[in-house]
């Protein structure tokens, strides 16, 4: 089965009825099944059902993924991409991606890809959290952030959906809100009955955090309990993961 994807941002008007109808019509020319996954709203709907597409709660600027599956997925991808590029903004990973701008929260963002870990010997949860903690900006006389992450994990492991962990701390010692996204080449034991993880989204927030910041992180955690979004997130390449993460932080979510 051939699978093609396209990532794009909705425009200022979101996704209008006539656009949903046009996309539905384009889908009918192909055997491939096409679905729209609105990452910002955490909602996946078949594109051939324009009513469901309209009910997905699409909003201006939402980050969306199009999934095209079938023997003629390549051709369908070409045609749909042509339409999408005309009406919406295609996500281009090679262009500079501004995480803060898309996430809507002022924070330090750092990405650790699988390539950063292949050079290293076998890593474990504690080593990784200490390494991640090294990127967090703390007040001078405090203990390292890695130790605070470990303390929090002792309380309860932070595996959210399948293969995604959200270690998080909120303390007065943090001077700059930070998000470190780490993608591992192999699943790592997170000492949780919910299984090992491949993606770690480490969040460090100052205390007290602004309402905007707390809202963004609760948006994120509510979405990460969704199994479908976690599977997509884990399998996505690093630039797409960054964009998905920003969308999950900024989007309120249809059912939230």
């Amino acid at each position: 089965m051939l699978i093609r994807q396209a990532a794009f941002y909705l425009g200022r008007s979101g996704l209008e009825t006539w656009q949903a109808e046009k996309l539905r019509k384009l889908c009918t020319y192909f055997h491939a099944s096409v679905s729209l996954f609105n990452v910002s709203q955490c909602c996946r709907v078949p594109l051939e059902n324009s009513l469901k597409v309209m009910a997905a709660g699409n909003k201006p600027g939402d980050f969306c993924l199009l999934f095209i599956e079938g023997m003629d997925a390549e051709l369908a991808h070409l045609v749909l991409l042509d339409y999408i590029s005309e009406h919406f903004k295609i996500f281009q990973p090679e262009q500079d991606f501004n995480f803060v701008q898309h996430a809507g929260v002022e924070c330090f963002f750092h990405l650790l890809t699988a390539a950063d870990f292949t050079r290293q010997a076998v890593i474990d949860k504690n080593t990784l959290l200490r390494e991640i903690g090294g990127y967090i900006k703390m007040s001078a006389d405090s203990c390292p952030a890695g130790e605070l992450f470990l303390l929090r994990e002792k309380h309860a492991a932070t595996v959210m959906g399948p293969q995604v962990a959200l270690p998080h701390i909120m303390t007065e010692l943090i001077t700059v809100p930070s998000i470190i996204l780490a993608s591992l080449p192999e699943p790592l034991d997170w000492h949780s009955p919910r299984g090992p993880v491949r993606c770690i989204i480490a969040a460090a927030l100052p205390k007290p955090a602004s309402v905007k910041m707390i809202r963004a992180f609760t948006n994120l955690s509510k979405k990460l309990v969704d199994e479908n979004i976690c599977r997509l997130f884990v399998d996505a390449p690093a630039p797409l993961q960054s964009a998905m993460l920003a969308a999950m932080l900024s989007g309120q979510g249809k059912n939230q």
Binding site: R152, H155, A156, T158, M160, L166, H168, I169, M170, A203, L205, I214, F217, T218, S221, K222, L224, V225
Partner: peptide, 9 residues
């Protein structure tokens, strides 16, 4: 205690 993840999980 933190109220941003475990509560919702």
């Amino acid at each position: 205690p933190t109220g941003i993840a475990h509560t919702y999980m």
